[in-house]
Design a binder for these strands. Structure first.
Lengths: 171, 171
DNA sequence: TATTGTTATACTCTATAACTATA
DNA sequence: TATAGTTATAGAGTATAACAATA
């Protein structure tokens, strides 16, 4: 299992993956139970609430969802729930402007305290005052590094599914 | 958006979430393209390869999957792909013993170098020699903290779906 | 009675491809 | 021609509940 990374690195990688998986899971649980939202949906709403209230689909997608259709789907769900509205953009006729509604803002505000509480109790509680800037600095650097590297879609090959049905039988 | 966490904490949280999301996505892309495996499937195989080659379903599930049926499903896929076998345990007649096959080991070994390369280039490249032990220490502490806290299932409420169909019409 | 695991089922998320329309 | 967005569709992942068998 220690192929090429030093044991130190491997251990760090595993700890990071497991910790963030647990955090993500806990946060999703809370958002679902407390607001009926998935994490992606929460991110979209939070982004809208933070950015003057309305964004175009492309702006909204950036960094949150990895495919156009995925965002269309999520935006549709949010719209159906009355949390956002969609309308044409005055600047660019091709663009769709997504606007957060009062209900959307209210939901974000309702959910936020609990969300923050989960994050604090799980992530920040075990950290010292020194850890915080270190972790922040490190992860910011890693994030910026990753943002810079791949042009957002990494080849998207044909998807051989080792575990998928081989479908050698005719039907 | 700065509800209760200090701006420093919020920024750290966001950086962590985005960086790990990007890392996770990149790793999944690679595993899928190079081995036809999801990340969960890879984790299961790697775990088996590391742990003497065979584990019971419950042991295997620990920390990887969050529901029994989910693991049964994944194990079924891996078995169908010839990467593991399942059989009764001699110790406990209720238990199912999952064993990695030669093909399973081979696949792990085939995929591992690329996996490691992705992790190195995305996560460790931008880190200094000092960052590594700091990150490792911090995330280990966070992980252990999280492992200790919740008994693995956090209430699992009724799941009100704000974005789901309200289904007020009698159907 | 508690635990291990499977089955059936349903739902959510995500992605690909084809398409429309504007720039 | 390139970009913005939608639609249709399909596939993968995960969870709940009901169940069978063993401890």
């Amino acid at each position: 299992m220690a192929d090429d990374l030093r044991p130190e690195q491997l251990q760090t990688y595993f700890a990071l993956v497991e910790a963030t998986a647990l955090l993500h899971h806990a946060v999703e649980q809370h958002l679902r139970a407390d607001g009926g939202l998935s994490y992606v949906q929460f991110q979209l709403l939070a982004r809208l609430a933070g950015s003057a209230g309305q964004l175009t689909m492309t702006e909204l997608a950036d960094g949150v969802v990895y495919s156009r259709s995925g965002l269309t789907h999520q935006a549709g769900l949010l719209e159906k729930a009355g949390l956002v509205t969609r309308g044409p953009s005055p600047d660019d006729q091709r663009a769709t402007l997504v606007t957060i509604t009062d209900a959307g803002r209210a939901l974000v505000e309702k959910v936020l305290p609990g969300h923050v509480e989960v994050v604090r109790s799980l992530l920040f509680d075990p950290l010292s005052e020194e850890d915080l800037p270190r972790l922040g600095d490190i992860m910011t650097r890693v994030r910026d590094h990753m943002r810079a590297l791949p042009p957002r879609s990494v080849t998207t090959r044909k998807r051989r599914t080792a575990t998928g049905d081989d479908r050698r039988s005719p039907s």
